[in-house]
Simulated assay, not measured.
Amino acid sequence: MSGTPSILLGGIAVGILAWGLERYRTRFVKSDLALAGLLALGILVFVALPGFYDFIGTMLNIDQRFVLLSLLAHFTMLSLVLYLLAAIRETNSRFSDLVRNLSANQVLQTDGGEQTIFVVIPAYNEEQTIRSVVTSLPESIRGYAVRPLVVSDGSADDTAKNAKYNGTTVVEHPINQGQGGALKTGFQIALEQGASIVVTMDGDGQHPAEELEQLVSPVIDDEADYVMGSRFKGNDYSGNGLVRESGIVFFTWMINILTKSDITDCTNGFRAVRASALTEMRLTEERFSAPELIIEARKNGLRIMEIPITIEGRKDGMTKKPKLKYALGLTRTIVITWLR
């Protein structure tokens, strides 16, 4: 190739390489320099050694150079898109970590010295129900002090204000991080405060506090490390509807097949975990955390137990789970957590 097109393409290659060098000099990100170098090299090879692409085309049984170049261009574009998506995910992860650390710093460190059950309650716009959930909790269970911890996840109402009752620990996310993000903030605080057992329950009043002792007893008695409530083993509230209930059954079956488990209710948020076990679990999911917790518990060899519980209807407000997005999110979380 010669003439004006060669000069133009050569200039583009030099410009891409200069961009990569400048990015590396500024931020020292090796991936940016490597990506720019590969793109520039590909263009320069096309200018200086066009026969190289003919050789590749022969190997791939592609006769026309234009078709080959189009294929390589699409492959390069796909690689760029995947790279950008990975960079966005990394940025979001770092931002979420910053939000959690800032929220955790709102809590003063206690002296400890007692066995504690931290009840982590993620809440998003639950001003109508959160006070009743907090007040329903007992002060102690079998010698363990019960400490409610409400994580107001970017709520735009009085959730945080109404949760502040009788010494309840309340932290706020400045923006919504999802239930998984709120739980991770709660776990971080509970571990920093020396929790013995960590319980999670919803802020909408559907998990009855009178069944809390039944939930934590297997952990206290060293019969289990991870105890899950199951609406299908108890007196289930039937307000889910056929579609949602069928979805729960399907995703539970999927987890059981992939992890050789025997659970019945994979989306239930009423659970008790030995606090020390949380440090072994790799939790990255911000939105759809329930299956990730189960699969991570299974991977780490935790003793998992289910107990029957009663799920009550929402006392106020509407569910915030979109059906299609929720189903897709659960599928993605199950597959990714199982494979990693």
Rank of each mutant, 00 (worst) to 15 (best):
N240A: 12
V249F: 15
E245F: 02
G203W: 00
F251V: 15
I255A: 15
K233H: 04
S217D: 08
D202L: 06
D221E: 05
G269E: 09
G269F: 09
V199A: 12
L191C: 08
T200W: 13
E213Y: 00
I255S: 00
S238N: 04
D202G: 02
H207K: 14
F250W: 14
I197V: 09
E223N: 09
E245H: 12
D265N: 08
D222A: 13
S238W: 08
S246E: 12
V227K: 11
S238R: 07
V199W: 08
A195Y: 01
C266S: 13
I255G: 10
V243Q: 10
Q193G: 12
T200P: 10
S261T: 08
V227S: 01
D202W: 12
F232Q: 03
C266T: 11
Q214I: 15
L215K: 09
L242V: 11
K233G: 04
G247C: 05
V243I: 09
E223A: 07
G203I: 00
G239D: 03
Q214V: 07
I248N: 03
D225V: 11
D236R: 15
A209T: 00
E213I: 04
S246I: 07
V219Q: 07
G229F: 00
D236P: 05
L258C: 02
D202F: 06
I263R: 02
A195F: 05
P218H: 02
F232S: 05
G205M: 01
F232M: 10
A195V: 11
V198M: 10
L258G: 01
E192H: 09
G241K: 14
F251S: 07
G205C: 01
Y237P: 01
S261L: 11
